[in-house]
Design a protein around this nucleic acid. Sequence first.
DNA 1: ATGAAAGCGCTAACAA
DNA 2: TTGTTAGCGCTTTCAT
Lengths: 328, 328
Amino acid sequence: MKDVAARAGVGLKTVSRVVNGEPGVTVETERRVQEAIDSLGFRRNDSARVLRKGRTASIGLVLEDLADPFYGPLSRAVEEVARAHGALLINGSSAEDPEREQELALALCARRVDGLIVIPAGDDHRYLEPEIKAGVATVFVDRPAGRIDADAVLSDSFGGSRAGVAHLIAHGHRRIGFIGDQPRIHTATERLRGYRTAMEDAELPVAPSWVALGSTAPEAVRDAVVDMVAGPEPVTALFAGNNRVTVTALRALADHQQRIALVGFDDLELADLLHITVIAQDAAALGRTAAERLFRRLDGIDDRPAQVTLKTTLIPRGSGEIPPGTIH
Amino acid sequence: MKDVAARAGVGLKTVSRVVNGEPGVTVETERRVQEAIDSLGFRRNDSARVLRKGRTASIGLVLEDLADPFYGPLSRAVEEVARAHGALLINGSSAEDPEREQELALALCARRVDGLIVIPAGDDHRYLEPEIKAGVATVFVDRPAGRIDADAVLSDSFGGSRAGVAHLIAHGHRRIGFIGDQPRIHTATERLRGYRTAMEDAELPVAPSWVALGSTAPEAVRDAVVDMVAGPEPVTALFAGNNRVTVTALRALADHQQRIALVGFDDLELADLLHITVIAQDAAALGRTAAERLFRRLDGIDDRPAQVTLKTTLIPRGSGEIPPGTIH
DNA sequence: ATGAAAGCGCTAACAA
DNA sequence: TTGTTAGCGCTTTCAT
């Protein structure tokens, strides 16, 4: 910038004005400055600008895994809102590791992102308290924050799985299995609660062998499926706790003689062609809502932290409507 | 940092040494500084650090659409490599709009990212020349750069679709349709070229009505499919130019009386359960290779720009092995 | 082992 | 309309 000023024969501030489109520069001066800019190939250094202004015009997004088809649309939705506000998006994957989540979130804070959107891997977010106090707007998505009071945008996991399980019951099932993620993950326990409530609503017992909570790695889910359909009290229907579970369960069920009904939490691409009944949550809406909340805070609207819950949708496509006892 | 120094009763530089783990500080002094840091909740401001050091420890990724299941894994792979090098990832979607690509890429350069990975939307990247000269390492992925000499990591679109179409021919098809993306997109024309070459190899004619290049919006693809299977010279097989086309084509073919063979470029989740034969490219490998190349450059290894092409894999699963004339 | 001073490139505040 | 000065928070250089 100094060089540009020298070459155009003007002061530093005049260049700054031209670069930022501020008023108070004659057309002629502007032309000279512009010429100098072009010939020197100058481009403003935003790092310096950030240091001076105190705002980085960027927000951070800590999610679980960008490669998961659930988080792609969520991230994209956040990006669109950020873009509308002139901000860039830095994102990182925690790989469901609380330490990595913390490391990432703090690294983003050190970069002085204006705001932070976090999909929690851990269940204790007190480490963010000083940052939030220092002015980093923070919104949690998909799962609530642990041990601090903060904004959160969630899907109705409880209501969704309750409706999904009720749907299976309505189609005649009495023995229904539930396969979900680690119990330390909030959505997993909420969905399990929905399952149990739906069973209670129908006054149905739940055998311990019908519930599997834990790793959603393919082998683990496959084992759980096999146990449930082949055990002494074999289930006639399954509720899959998330998209990964649904996919693996479908593969495991593909060559089972008995047709097992299935409702999965989360929609999948091609689920329509495979006739999979799902409880769909709107990942993009989740991201959009969270980002909008964040920017409201950045715009100075400072209401109390609140929790927003988005509805889920039951989409019947066939797999959830198979009656018990159907053969392939 | 000033405050920390004051509170610990030491000089600014000493605090800096402690914060950065530099040697030359007594244990006792370090303890005092650390205490001040903790009680003040101090965290280094990386913006200032960046300004001083000239390196941001961040790289930019401009891709087409983070919500597209092809780019999620790619982005994640880039992130992992970046993380291994202590860098953060800023990413943005061009939405296949050349102007938006440029805007994003230049915004990232203004932030002084150390390197840039670009999945081109446009076909003229001369606008990046000054940045590259100024030291921003740049690698193009999925599609080559336009009008400049730069690193590129690509999948073998030509060879992949040639193999896919040859596979259909080997299963008895003579009238094969091709549906692909806009011709200005490099991969689209390469894949078309692969199709034409495979047809020529087998000395088969190609009717103009068998080729549709253009928007991959569902309606457009659906129309193309309907035209091809119902025209005067109806095709018995289709080659789908990318994942979106495959999905829409499958939906359009689902209720057609004749079974149409299909091979799609790009693998899909659940493609195994739907028995879809595909030409798979390894999105993660694409991202990893590009990122590794980028960091090699950042490490000072400065060989000439080169183009790397990754192999594709034909995965036969059923849809590509349907003989002509099969009825549902 | 420790610290003082200069300066990275920009913008805010003020002056001319 | 234009320019000057100070300083954002850190690291680098050079003294001590």
